[in-house]
Design a protein around this nucleic acid. Structure first.
Lengths: 339, 339
DNA sequence: TTGTAAGCGTTATCAA
DNA sequence: TTGATAACGCTTACAA
């Protein structure tokens, strides 16, 4: 039992072990210059008392703390949660904890909100998820505040010490090439929202694939949404209504692809019988919709894991892997072209 | 500009304002016994310096901190994220921050992990999401550690100061009654995993509805899954294969309902033409699958909001609303019975 | 290898 | 209404 109510402190441990608090501190911090006997003695007392160092006191004395923040305005819940899991796995068995902060990208106070978040909690570092990871002012803010940061993105947004990147462009090119290989020539494209880097990269991938196979880009086959189901539904209605309708569609994310499936049903069409379809993200909906959706999977958890290591060990950040390969997951929503 | 590198401290403010640090502290903490003139003077300096109190130092001096934890092992990403948003909205403009901790319900070290989490971060309080909110040992642990807590659940798991509750049982009864009102008599049921309180409550709701309409429970129409798509697929195969197949199915969550749709397609059947279907949760997949799924929606965000208020103001916790009503969301997956 | 003293930035106590 | 002083629990000098 401890002396008083409340938790045992370093003083309790020192007293009971008959050493100074500095010695206890050395044990906690694994100082090499320590007699094995004293270490064991102190460790025994620590165990006996169930002593856990007070992180706030440590933070104060060290003039740094062990909180990392996750800043996001990502509409995809699975993505955000997978990122959280990837981070947590990376910091497991460290003293870091993860503080989350969903924000509103369109808020005029965006920067102020984030500044306040970082300053108020005195964060050690922050993760910035797409799409707000594309805002350069954010990384500037972090530098100004002396807060470490890592951005997740689909392009070379920053140096490798502050970035994990997926190759959306090549992955989309591979997916669209697959459609071409299946005989499709009229391939529709639903872009993501204007101004999003991921949307730009994915569109470039589409164009790359067409160009590589000598196909012309037909503006009539291209439309855009904002990554939501509803805009996918709209896009699907547009693409599937003309008499020159595509035999296959690449949608810049799964959510919009689900909308396209609905549009197809509305038009009395069926995926993949009448139109093949590929999405992007491999969210749970991709595997669970009917038909199961061929899509592009990016290694979110691995990226988050690597990003977390960059963040908590800034000195080694540049060595940590920064570039990740996405892959096409083949399911039932694609079928060879038949006239 | 501040005196040194680093952030301004209470001392900087005190010096510049020509008052003692205690006075600055009083300003920060809105002490009523303060001359308006001094307050304004100090506030001006605070603004000028961009001073933000150090939360770790406050935590140390106050012997409490402002971190609340979210402990979950919930397979549904949207649920977890909506909870996070509900909490964040409730604590916006307070000094509380939210620390997340996904855990593994099946880990033998479950309790130790959570104890470690609470002790290491010295959490002020924790949210416990279902299904682990049903583990009474967890609330016992919180009490032992002097950590406030709130549980989210689908039954009267605790007193109202420590609980927000949704009425799964009645909501399911309403959903199943709707099927009966549509003329269905052979109504299949897919239960959630054994041992989950939510699974039990939902099954009771099903039984209640049948009983209320004088229908017998037919064990051949009942099966169980563990809330995953795959087990829903299995359950669907079982229910839809017999020659006595149900004309409608209630699935204890949406994910399993998606599996049932796949099973129907495999069997050459269509929802709702050949079988009506209702799910539970109203996750995004419900609205985005084809056909759009009739389902039960529980007010996750409102529950999380209320739970957060209970947590950060324990003295008023019992006054905060604890009971929430779920509602049936009608979509295209239900059709009147036709022989 | 260990201990002493001072300090991290804040609040509580108690006096002025 | 304000301020001096001593905590809070830990770490970093610097000594011993």
């Amino acid at each position: 039992m401890q002396k008083r109510e409340g938790k045992a402190t370093i003083n309790d441990v020192a007293d009971l072990a008959g050493v100074s608090k500095k010695t206890v501190s050395r044990v906690i911090n694994r100082s090499p210059l320590l007699n094995d006997a004293t270490r064991e003695k102190v460790e025994a007392v620590i165990a006996q008392l169930g002593y856990v160092p007070n992180p706030q006191a440590r933070a104060l004395a060290l003039r740094r703390n062990f909180l990392i923040g996750l800043i996001h305005d990502n509409p995809n819940a699975q993505t955000v949660l997978t990122v959280q899991q990837g981070i947590l796995e990376a910091v497991r068995d460290t003293e870091f904890a993860l503080v989350v902060r969903p924000i509103n990208r369109r808020s005029p106070r965006l920067l102020d909100d984030i500044r306040h978040f970082i300053e108020q909690q005195r964060l050690f570092g922050v993760f910035i998820l797409p799409p707000i990871s594309e805002i350069d002012a954010l990384s500037g803010l972090c530098r100004e505040l002396g807060c470490h940061y890592v951005r997740m993105g689909s392009a070379r947004l920053d140096d490798v010490a502050h970035l994990v990147e997926s190759n959306d462009r090549q992955a989309v090119a591979a997916a669209v090439s697959h459609l071409i290989a299946q005989g499709h020539r009229q391939i529709g494209f639903v872009a993501g929202p204007q101004g999003f880097r991921s949307a730009y990269e994915r569109e470039q991938g589409y164009r790359d694939a067409l160009a590589a196979h000598g196909l012309a880009v037909d503006p009539a086959l291209m439309t855009a949404g904002n990554y939501t189901f509803e805009t996918g539904l709209e896009a699907g209605r547009v693409l599937l209504s003309g008499d020159q309708r595509p035999s296959a569609i690449f949608s810049s994310n799964d959510e919009m692809a689900a909308g396209i499936v609905h549009a197809a049903h509305e038009a009395g069409l069926e995926v993949p019988r009448d139109v093949s379809l590929i999405g992007f993200d491999d969210t749970p909906i991709a595997a669970h919709m009917w038909p199961p959706l061929t899509t592009v999977r990016w290694p979110i958890k691995a990226m988050a894991h690597s990003a977390a290591l960059k963040l908590i060990r800034p000195e080694r950040a540049a060595q940590e892997v920064a570039f990740f390969e996405s892959e096409v997951i083949h399911r039932a929503s694609v079928r060879p072209f038949s006239a």
